[in-house]
Amino acid sequence: MSPALRAFLRSPAGILGVALLVLVLVAAASADWFFPRDPLSLAGRPLQWPGQNPRLLLGTDNLGRDIAGFICHGARVSLLIGLVATVVAVGLGTLVGAIAGFYGGWVDDALMRVTEAFQTVPNFILLLVLVAVFGSELEVITIAIGLVGWTAPCRLVRAEFMSLRTREYVLAARGLGVRDAGLIFREILPNALPPVIVYASVVMAVAILMESALAFLGLSDPNIASWGNMIGAGRSVLRTEWYVSAIPGVAILVTVLAFSLVGQGLNDALNPRLQAV
């Protein structure tokens, strides 16, 4: 067992995070098995409280949808959107950050101004603009969430590249005639990636929160089972049947917490300095 893995397993945050993550993954994987029906379809009389009907474990919402089935199918949607958006954000951020950090000079200046422009416009408002312009299909929303989240990974990669580009092994590779692309992707990038991978869990958590907020406002794809969507639908019966909004919120909380905890565990494992204090 590698020391990093052992350190990860010693961090309570990491273990709890992995446990919660497994829970969410099981819910997502078993959705079709336990709840083969369309999660958006009518499952029974609307507004049955959890436990009232043994067939519907978590009850039904105001549209008569089975909440338990909706939660499990929603786990797929959240994980899928979160994962793809994270890949887009981290991929784009890594590419821009690598180029800016490697070349420096005016290239860096220009790219950093663009990064600052993205950081200056509030992410969620930029997301609204993208949705208003390009529509709210699943693909559009996923890519848009990725597009508004690339600046933090970009700055991280840039900082790593700036400190790594003058290391001896890079100079040696350059002396051997390796081209820029080879230096960037094969020499420096593998060494710059660990902090980015840790940070990806934060990007994932933020992406899931953003999608749920969008769905809550009714601006996400209406044809998918999104947790935020059910919270929004439950608003009209909030005074009496508050569980309709409460239950999907717990699902979001657990999922986001799982990714934050995994990130924390990875951080503890790779950066043990603060523990020693």
């Binding site: 945050a13 958590a205 929160l209 749920s212 907020a213 809550f216 935020g228 919270i231 439950g234 608003r235 909030l238 005074r239 508050w242 909004s245 409460a246 999907p248 919120g249 979001i252 909380l253 657990v254 986001v256 917490l257 934050s260 905890l261 924390q264």
Partner: peptide, 18 residues
């Protein structure tokens, strides 16, 4: 702190209203 970080603000708002 970790729990607060994971709570969606709009959901928290609704629960506080309840």
């Amino acid at each position: 702190g970790l729990v607060f970080y994971a709570i969606p603000s709009f959901w928290l708002g609704l629960m506080l209203i309840v």
